[in-house]
Nucleic acid binder design. Structure first.
Lengths: 248, 248
DNA sequence: TTACGTAATTCTGTATACAACAAACCGATC
DNA sequence: GATCGGTTTGTTGTATACAGAATTACGTAA
């Protein structure tokens, strides 16, 4: 089976498991029985095991000393650490990109995406679809940035860290959509985006690194706001996971 | 089965696969057939699959689009990136530790390990066993340092990055043992160790971070020396992997 | 009522059988 | 001699049977 094959049972189990965990259908600390998941996902134990192994590698679940898996509990500290880690790695990628000095062509994609965001921000009011577009452009910009370091190793690690739903660059953007200060945060973020590309072009590695670290702090700020307003957490990917963890 | 159980077939397969890859018994890019590994390791396909999935998560092998795994090829850039990444994460851990301000008791273990290294360095000549002791103390010191950040998330990631044989804190130390400048490098490394603990105690986060980044550069220096002297590479963990990759 | 020991049940670890798919090989035809 | 097609072989994906271990539940005794 190819891991990428759409019709693959393993793929099916992986997606279903990931979604179930992220949407909070299990409580933190709950044991995940292979047989139960087998019935739930409609596949046999083999693909379920593969999905569990992958989820463990991604850090969503952890092994029990006696065997088997439990849903991981995320403390508030775990969340801020994951976000900071993402900022650290993105900062590293940005610095490497600046030190390397990408060609104008390599920077084109990132700039195009930023122009798209700029266009959104010109509107006096942002609709829900506008926010969806922003989330998409933002995610693509971050990936383009990771790519600018031209290092498969760095790309791989930053991708892994950002795979945790709440550590992703767009993890808390949706929450902002409901808040009055949403527009201001997005504009701040966009200024970071523009500045880091400017820094990379000017080969200012230290500045690029510092900017991406600070950029991740926006996510931490949003996290604080989210924790103060628990009702909205459920709307977010990974939200229930967080609340359950905090309740522990 | 518990992943930690010593007698476990899965554990057996994981260790055997890892060793086989690291010692260069497969060529980079070579396809790893499950059935072949089954015969080789004396276990059934199920544990072999688990071992392959784990090796992929560790970054030693990668999946083929059509299914199956191949041994990953490591370019020289991959190696330096992995080492730098380790330095980045260790620097982050050190900074976090400094900002947090560990108690004297928490620092005790790290200091004890450093005292052990100091004692070794007092000797006029270091034997092979002395180097083994150094490698052990060094590895334990680094783990103790990771722990000082008091963040499971950070510990987890730095452990993962350091799992690649050539990115490990002690990856190239053994190579030094044969070189005349070995003692000088070890003394430099030990000075980094002592300084970073001093910085953490003084809550000098930026200094602690910079020191650990620079500390990792020692490994890069050793890598350069190793690449210039291919014959010695085979003695190292992961050495053959590198040579094969460089030969690509 | 609580604690302890035993039995039953559930779970994971492991091996293996079967099917679908891909690749390699061989032969035939142009 | 080269190319195309079919066959054969090997590989992975998937399901499942069986055994051992762990956890849970229950009953008994203090």
């Amino acid at each position: 089976m190819s891991r990428e094959a759409e019709g693959s049972q393993t793929r099916k189990a992986e997606l279903a498991l990931r979604q179930a965990i992220v949407e909070g259908e299990f409580r933190a600390g709950e044991r995940l029985s292979e047989l139960t998941l087998t019935e739930r996902f409609g596949v046999s134990r083999t693909p379920v095991r593969a999905a569990l192994a992958r989820a463990e590698a991604e850090g969503l679940i952890e092994t029990l000393p006696s065997g088997g898996y439990v849903v991981r509990a995320f403390s508030e500290g775990d969340l801020t650490d994951a976000i900071d880690l993402r900022g650290l790695l993105e900062g590293f990628a940005a610095r490497r990109a600046a030190e390397r000095g990408p060609s104008r062509g390599e920077l084109a994609e990132a700039k195009l995406l930023l122009a798209g965001i700029d266009k959104l921000l010109l509107k006096p009011e942002m609709s829900a679809e506008d926010f969806d577009t922003y989330v998409d452009l933002n995610a693509r910009f971050h990936r383009a940035l990771w790519d600018l370091a031209q290092s498969p190793t760095i790309f791989r690690e930053v991708e892994r860290v950002a795979a945790l739903p709440f550590a992703s660059p767009s993890g808390f953007v949706r929450l902002q959509a409901h808040l009055p200060e949403a527009r201001a945060v997005v504009m701040l973020a966009q200024d970071h985006h523009l500045s880091v590309i400017e820094a990379i072009e000017a080969r200012e590695g230290a500045r690029a690194e510092a900017l991406m670290r600070e950029h991740a702090r926006l996510a931490r700020r949003n996290l604080q706001a989210a924790l103060a307003d628990r009702d909205r957490l459920d709307e977010l990917p990974g939200g229930p996971l967080i609340r359950h963890a905090v309740n522990l």
